[in-house]
Nucleic acid binder design. Structure first.
Lengths: 171, 171
DNA sequence: GCAGATCGTATGTTATAGCTTATTATTTGT
DNA sequence: ACAAATAATAAGCTATAACATACGATCTGC
């Protein structure tokens, strides 16, 4: 009743080259619109709503706090985001996407997804549906939820941010 | 007739963190069996059949020719692969997995896929089917086929190994 | 008003992956 | 037998990312 017949490849063995190809395909589109990957990631994050501090934004996109600074500099200089000191606390910068940033982001995403459609077109309609629905499920999980699900199968009861690997021994 | 209603996330935006979490979950399993990621990749490649030269193996797994040497050293020392000079051409090394290597590889894969099942269990059965079938399709594509499909949508008529990106301008 | 904490920023350090070159052993063609 | 080519190996260089540190500006609590 387990019903798993043919051996399947490891998920990462398929997804890693696939993801790499997807990223490689994104880069020319981003470059054509004068954006870096991090710039695009920031625009996507801010498109979901303004963010109060740069540290919060960094955590939201899993980036280092000190690393996004130059990205923000460039996005601001290009008029794609606004970055004003909070009047109530002049240490923090209020971050938001501008209308120009929104349309730029939409244009880039259209280009990226147009490419991706060629890949999805390889699938029969039913599988494409299932694939995309699966991705929507996984897109809704945080990094910690992904990890804890994978490592224990315990659903939201474990310690999500505790365990980390790190050891890399040799044979 | 296009029938694409809700906005979907970019594929890479979902697949990149997912793949990273999968890799992070693999590492403890590999370490528990005394293997590195590259060692496991090599075992998987050789499990599909022996390979005549190290350079051929390197290309097959998209690794640098000079990089797998230490990996092969360790796998050989652990008795997981055989690596004999070809009697007909003593420059080349004939590479093959040993029975010990096969069982080690199977044990590692069982551990990895057991973890992955926890992730797949989050999906309704129909979507899981579609997801896995989609992955089987993409697993059958070479890196060059993935790239050309993504970049042009031209099916096997373009130049698969010609175009490369590389420019990374800033905003 | 002062001490301690917080935010953004600049800078430096370390680890690692990718690439290049050089060397040795061996084969092939003339 | 000799020159050119090829396979494996060794060693070094470079770019990049992750991590840590330090500093000035600003806020909060006392």
């Amino acid at each position: 009743m387990t019903g798993q017949d043919a051996a399947r490849p490891d998920l990462a063995a398929v997804l890693h080259p696939l993801t790499q190809a997807l990223i490689d395909a994104e880069l020319p589109v981003l470059a054509a619109h004068g954006l870096t990957m991090w710039g695009y990631v920031v625009l996507n994050a801010l498109d979901g709503g303004p963010v109060r501090t740069q540290a919060a934004l960094a955590e939201q996109i899993s980036a280092d706090k000190t690393r996004i600074i130059s990205t923000l500099d460039r996005l601001q200089a290009a008029g794609l985001i606004s970055r004003q000191p909070d009047p109530d606390d002049r240490r923090v910068r209020l971050l938001a996407i501008t209308p120009a940033g929104q349309s730029r982001r939409a244009a880039v995403q259209a280009g990226i997804q147009a490419n991706e459609e060629h890949l999805l077109a390889l699938l029969p309609a039913a599988d494409r549906q299932g694939f995309l629905r699966a991705l929507l499920v996984y897109a809704g999980l945080s990094r910690a939820e992904l990890t804890s699900t994978l490592q224990a199968g315990s659903t939201s009861t474990g310690s999500p941010t505790a365990i980390r690997p790190g050891a890399t021994t040799e044979p």
